[in-house]
Design a protein around this nucleic acid. Structure first.
Lengths: 209, 209
DNA sequence: CGCTAATCTAGAACAAGTTACAGACTTGAT
DNA sequence: ATCAAGTCTGTAACTTGTTCTAGATTAGCG
């Protein structure tokens, strides 16, 4: 990504110097580490700044709010996941299976760091208009992961809608799990349920109708 | 509902006196009014207390956090919507249509007060474990509305999963719309897309498989 | 009525996100 | 090497959610 300080913005801000890149990295790492410990609440801006060896004002220059910081953290983690997944693509026979498998794999990864997941997902859904560009980036990354799993090069609008619905379900199911209102089994079922939409919106299925 | 002070809790708290009921009502109204003006941020606990003519400490006794307050506000609004919808049931021929129609009607209602919608939905998705019972109540209410629209008395587990997925999509689509990342048209398409799951999980469809 | 426990009020105090600012340090261009 | 512009640091202040406290009020009961 090599994003400039304010993540991805319109006028393509100046590139970062090496030390700035390092600072940004330290901040993101500190954020992830604190989040992994105690979730959303444990990511306190003063603590992040201290852990990253950076002044509070500098932290805010790099990430204009706690939400921005956590969304950027999520972006970072998603990137990892994407490359990991690419190395070991899902094995299912049809697209719906592969997507479900991919999402469940991601889900298991999140289960290993539930607090981190909590912090990132809460930030994502709490983000308001001011964070739209960043949230959008995360959304595009997620879409890319799902399309990868489907193996679909040129999705139809119908398929894109199905993918959006899958993303909606994914985020929302994650939240219900994180807040203890749904079991892991239930999340699995819901993901499998929603993935059926993929078959339903496949071009051949449309032709069959 | 006539919930006691701490909404619905296990040991069925004591009933409220008339004055307490009135206070609770004033608080919820103040909350909705402030939210309708300026969204989540405009609902400031001191302001709510003042507008409701109640001390800050009292407000916190009735609703132990801003999130609780807003979730209760949502519960309140949903109740209205549910009775309204019952008076004028959706007219579509098959269940999927009727659910889509119902949700779009609800969506249009929210469009009339986008700021209020923002405050309520953000609170709902931001709620952590501590608010689970209240969030669950909202979820059950939503489920009831959808099942009403389907006209299904005894849903199968499969159908319940479909309903959950629809709820996920509904919340999450709402969020993307509220944060300006999706158009109204897109929300409509996504809702219609997810509603197809209803046909797909209808008992006859299962038999056909 | 008179008592006791629960509730309510007003206001201070505390916590964490955010902003502001003065002075030191870096960077890039000349 | 020097200068101007931009960054970074340290620190204090401000905002808003939340907690706490002491004293007034109210509700239920004998």
């Amino acid at each position: 990504m090599t994003a400039d300080i304010r993540a991805d913005h319109r006028p393509a801000a100046p590139p970062l110097t090496e030390r700035q890149e390092a600072r940004r990295r330290r901040i993101l790492n500190a954020s992830a580490q604190l989040a992994a410990r105690g979730g959303f609440d444990a990511v306190q801006m003063r603590e992040v700044a201290e852990a990253a060896g950076v002044a509070l004002g500098t932290l805010y220059r790099y990430f204009p709010s706690k939400i921005h910081l956590l969304v950027a953290t999520m972006q970072d983690q998603l990137q990892h996941m994407h490359t990991t997944l690419r190395k070991r693509p899902p094995a299912g026979a049809d697209p719906a299976e592969r997507v479900a498998e991919t999402l469940m794999r991601a889900f298991r990864a999140l289960q290993r760091e539930p607090q981190l997941a909590d912090a990132m997902v809460r930030a994502l859904t709490f983000a308001d208009r001011g964070v739209s560009p960043e949230v959008d980036t995360v959304s595009r990354l997620t879409t890319a992961i799902i399309l990868d799993a489907m193996g679909t090069e040129h999705p139809t609008p119908e398929q894109l809608s199905a993918v959006r619905v899958i993303e909606h379900t994914w985020h929302s199911a994650l939240i219900t799990w994180l807040s203890g209102r749904a079991s892991i089994a239930q999340v699995k079922i819901d993901i499998e349920t929603v993935c059926r939409l993929i078959d339903l919106t496949a071009p051949e299925a449309a032709a069959r109708r």
